[in-house]
């Protein structure tokens, strides 16, 4: 294994707190929720494993013995509900990233057999290809046809998260336009200005 400090991107002299912070930051980045249904899910999982191991290794090296310290959220909760599915082969193809084959099977399905699952899988193929709009429409159709199904719902929710970019750190479309009114920051800035002026006065006295 690589040097665990390098994996977490911290120096060997870093404090425990710094290491924890670096670990948390990376764990948030590689978190399986960010890569649900993504063609890169397996790579993200691998990275997550690496940082988990590195974090554990460092904790062990430093002989903390505090078991609670290395507590972390582990693993993804991917749905594996469909072993009895009528589109079993399609699911296998998608799992192996063989999207052309998966679509071929789907396309050869007669109109009458196009169930909610069919739309879900069709959406999954589009998603893997990067065709986000088509994927979104298909997931929506699947959810409308079978609103009780958790798997379809999860896929649609994931899409909706990405579409509002909840975890990228900028969800306020108007923030950068400078059109906002008086925000918390403005108040702070004003206070600081006022403070400076007070200082000036007192220095002048």
């Amino acid at each position: 294994m690589n040097n665990p400090y390098e994996v977490l991107g911290v120096s060997e002299t870093a404090t425990d707190e710094e290491i924890k912070a670096a670990y948390r930051k990376l764990a948030k980045k590689y978190h399986p929720d960010n890569y649900t249904d993504s063609p890169l899910a397996d790579i993200a999982e691998q990275k997550m494993k690496e940082i988990n191991e590195a974090y554990d290794a460092i904790n062990e090296m430093r002989q903390k013995g505090k078991g609670t310290d290395s507590k972390r959220t582990s693993g993804s909760s991917s749905y594996q509900s469909a072993s009895s599915s009528q589109f079993y082969s399609v699911r296998i193809y998608i799992q192996r990233n063989m999207i052309d084959q998966a679509e071929q099977v789907l396309e050869s399905t007669p109109m009458g057999n196009r169930t909610a699952e069919w739309y879900y899988l069709k959406g999954m193929c589009a998603y893997r290809r990067g065709w986000n709009e088509q994927a979104f429409n298909n997931f929506t159709t699947a959810c409308n046809m079978d609103p009780q199904n958790g798997e379809y719902r999860a896929a649609l929710n994931n899409m909706q998260n990405q579409r509002s970019y909840n975890y990228g750190g900028y969800n306020q479309p108007n923030m950068q336009n400078g059109t906002m009114g008086c925000s918390c920051c403005d108040v702070c800035a004003a206070m600081m200005c006022a403070d400076c002026m007070c200082d000036c006065c007192s220095a002048g006295c």
Binding site: K29, Y30, A44, Q162, R163
Partner: peptide
């Protein structure tokens, strides 16, 4: 647009 950026960013993080 958000979604494309989000997916690009996720890939970039890897």
């Amino acid at each position: 647009l958000n979604q494309s950026l989000a997916r690009a960013y996720d890939a970039y993080n890897l």
